[in-house]
């Protein structure tokens, strides 16, 4: 009943012509026909945000939209975030601050955050929480994610900001001088292949 369709999709700036059953979602076609497996599935029903990609710059749940309806639109996935081999500020911040633990929800959250930062370069914490509130994460407790987005936003604005030491080392233990002296920043210790 559902015939195969052929469509030319523009993903991360590259056009590719793929054939797939007409009832397949954008998520399925990205993962299975375009070999872009960075986009994940967590619930299959639009309830978790793991499959978030950008369509014409806006966040879309790729599990709830048909691939065949996306010809002529600009699709962006996590694979398009880096500039060549150089990670973008959100990616650096997520990697360095522990905003990605298991990393399964990470692609969807990165895309939702990317869409937000393009519109709003200086989002408040509340705004970050709201814009990412459709994305579930079970590892981080979200705090490191919000902190990473704030840091990445500052870097994108061209500010020479580093994360505050309590994000990296915890708060100083009360009543113990030097108990948790801030140490090196991740930029000094992180692997250099950003």
């Amino acid at each position: 009943m559902s015939r195969a369709v052929t469509a030319t999709l523009r993903v991360n700036g590259e056009e590719r012509t793929v054939a797939f059953p007409g009832h397949h979602t954008l998520l399925e076609v990205l993962r299975e026909e375009c070999a872009l497996t960075g986009t994940k599935h967590g619930c299959e029903l639009g309830e978790c945000g793991a499959c978030t990609v950008l369509v014409d710059g806006r966040p879309v749940l790729s599990c709830l939209t048909l691939a065949c309806q996306h010809e002529g639109r600009e699709i962006e996935t996590v694979e398009g975030l880096a500039d060549g081999n150089r990670l973008g500020p959100l990616q650096v911040a997520f990697a360095d601050l522990g905003a990605a633990q298991c990393g399964y929800c990470t692609p969807g959250i990165l895309m939702a955050a990317e869409a937000m930062l393009r519109e709003q370069p200086r989002p408040s914490r509340e705004r970050i929480a709201e814009q990412l509130s459709g994305n579930l994460c079970r590892c981080t407790g979200y705090l490191k994610i919000v902190e990473a987005v704030e840091w990445a936003a500052a870097v994108r604005r061209g500010e020479d900001a580093g994360p505050p030491p309590e994000i990296l080392f915890g708060h100083p233990e009360p009543g113990r001088p030097g108990g948790d002296a801030p140490g090196r920043r991740p930029s000094e210790t992180a692997s250099s292949n950003t």
């Binding site: 694979e79 990616q91 990697a95 360095d96 140490g183 210790t189 692997s191």
Partner: peptide, 18 residues
């Protein structure tokens, strides 16, 4: 030190193979 986790890069690029 709060060094970047060794799989940190793969997890933010979509390269981690689940």
């Amino acid at each position: 030190a709060p060094f970047r986790r060794v799989d940190g890069r793969a997890k933010v690029t979509g390269d981690t193979r689940f």
